[in-house]
């Protein structure tokens, strides 16, 4: 006998939140990549934080009451949403300082770069943690989803970095790094699906999410995020092999990669299934009990 109640899906976080995650993730990782690669052109350092700021703007537009945004800092609560707001804001303030110094062409702004570099990590991590904090959505509260979300963020940042580096200096090592990250990503994605297959035996919500991902409406998004990684990897390999086409192949690969990153973000949000209100075991119990009418007599 079929005894199950369907899990229910979160409806509130959608494309705009995914866009914020994309912008802040790739923005902050772009900064990290540049800083680590010891890049030379100051203007490029400004791009990453600008993307994070754009993400913040998207997030603000998503709020029902943007005017109350500051309360999340004023009334700080130990929540990743509040932390995210603080990191984003701090990130933006440092960026403003950097931009002003750059515009005035005074002083040494390397210390600012260092601080911004340090802040890039929490900005990179907070979307992951935001999802991880939701206890009832088992797909989000998994190390594998977190790892992949993070990897996708880094992949987006390094792809952007690779594309931008072409404009200013030879960026072979960033392209190499991007290609490598995409290889890891593809492997992880395979492992991820296997991992979810294991988990669906425990959680109905994961089962639903996996079904949606493999056979339902989430399928296109999964294919996009997978093929995004594969195609951009191919582009980077072509660019590295045939240097003259790099100017074309790298930006193209980066764009495709970003599309893949966005798809993955959107997919994870869309598959935010809560556990069903009544578990299978409990449902059996309840059906049995209601048949026997153990309710209170009047």
């Amino acid at each position: 006998m079929v005894m199950r109640m369907e899990p229910f899906r979160q409806q509130e976080f959608g494309w705009r939140v995914a866009l914020d995650f994309l912008l802040s993730g790739s923005g902050s990782s772009l900064f990290i990549v540049y800083f680590l690669a010891g890049g030379g052109v100051s203007a490029v350092y400004m791009v990453g934080p600008a993307l994070v700021l754009a993400g913040l703007a998207v997030l603000l537009s998503e709020l029902g009451r943007p005017s109350n945004f500051w309360r999340s800092i004023y009334n700080y609560r130990a929540s990743w949403m509040a932390r995210g707001a603080i990191f984003n804001l701090a990130y933006t303030l440092i960026w403003l300082a950097m931009v002003s110094l750059y515009a005035l062409r005074v002083g040494n702004y390397f210390p600012l770069y260092a601080v911004e570099f340090a802040f890039s990590f929490p900005v990179l991590i907070y979307p992951v943690m935001l999802l991880y904090e939701v206890k009832d959505i088992k797909l989000w509260r998994s190390w594998w989803t977190s790892a992949l979300t993070l990897l996708y963020a880094i992949s987006g940042g390094s792809s952007l970095g690779a594309a931008l580096s072409l404009l200013y200096r030879s960026g072979d090592q960033i392209v190499y790094a991007s290609a490598l990250i995409n290889v890891i990503l593809i492997v992880f994605l395979f492992v991820y699906i296997q991992e979810l297959r294991q988990k669906q035996r425990v959680y109905r919500s994961v089962e639903s999410a996996l079904r949606e991902m493999l056979y339902g409406g989430g399928r296109a998004l999964l294919q996009l995020s997978f093929s995004g990684a594969v195609v951009s990897l191919a582009m980077y390999v072509i660019a590295l092999a045939i240097q003259p086409v790099a100017l074309l192949a790298v930006p193209l690969g980066a764009a495709i990669d970003l599309a893949g990153v966005y798809s993955f973000r959107l997919m994870v949000l869309r598959l935010g299934f809560h556990e069903p209100l009544v578990s299978e075991r409990r449902l059996r119990e309840m059906a049995e009990g209601l048949r026997k009418r153990s309710g209170e007599p009047q």
Partner: peptide, 16 residues
């Protein structure tokens, strides 16, 4: 008056 409409709670609530 304090709510900023981020809906994180809506997403997190296990009971819809």
């Amino acid at each position: 008056d304090r709510c900023m409409g981020c809906r994180y709670c809506v997403v997190a609530c296990p009971y819809m």
